[in-house]
């Protein structure tokens, strides 16, 4: 079973996201900030990461930059999932090596459509 790490400081968002990615067939791990996510990745590199931007201790963008430096750190597909919804943030995230970008609020349809665009799930209609 592929794995997905959900990184968000909101327990509610993590819970909602967990349900959606589990429905897509992923085993889900959670982390509440970038530092905890980094530690989780040193133990086991996930296949996908759903990543918030603004978090205490270590932000999502700092985590992404560190992740991409790690051995095997280029492996996971990273989808930002944040309230930051301007072109400057999107560009910065993509330049740092994100694969997709979701602007909150999101729903299961948006997550599924983004997962399928970057090859994490086979789209239902395909």
């Amino acid at each position: 079973m592929p794995s997905c790490l959900v990184v968000d400081d909101s327990r509610v968002v993590r819970k909602v996201a967990r349900r959606i990615v589990e429905d897509l067939g992923y085993a889900c791990e959670e982390a509440e900030d970038g530092q905890k996510a980094y530690e989780a990745c040193t133990k086991a590199m996930p296949d996908a990461i759903l990543l918030d931007w603004n978090m205490p201790v270590m932000s999502g963008i700092e985590f992404l930059e560190k992740l991409r430096q790690m051995p095997n750190g280029k492996g996971p597909k990273v989808i930002f999932c944040t309230t930051e919804n301007d072109m400057a943030h999107i560009t910065r995230a993509m330049n740092a090596g994100a694969n997709e970008y979701i602007m909150k609020p999101f729903d299961s349809e948006i997550i599924e459509s983004k997962f399928s665009q970057i090859g994490l799930v086979t789209s239902k209609s395909a």
């Binding site: 919804n85 560009t91 997709e100």
Partner: peptide
Amino acid sequence: SQFEVQRGLPIQMLMKYFEQ
């Protein structure tokens, strides 16, 4: 709307072909 551009549109295309 933000909702509409997230349904089916890859982020790279949003960056290339849209303005906020």
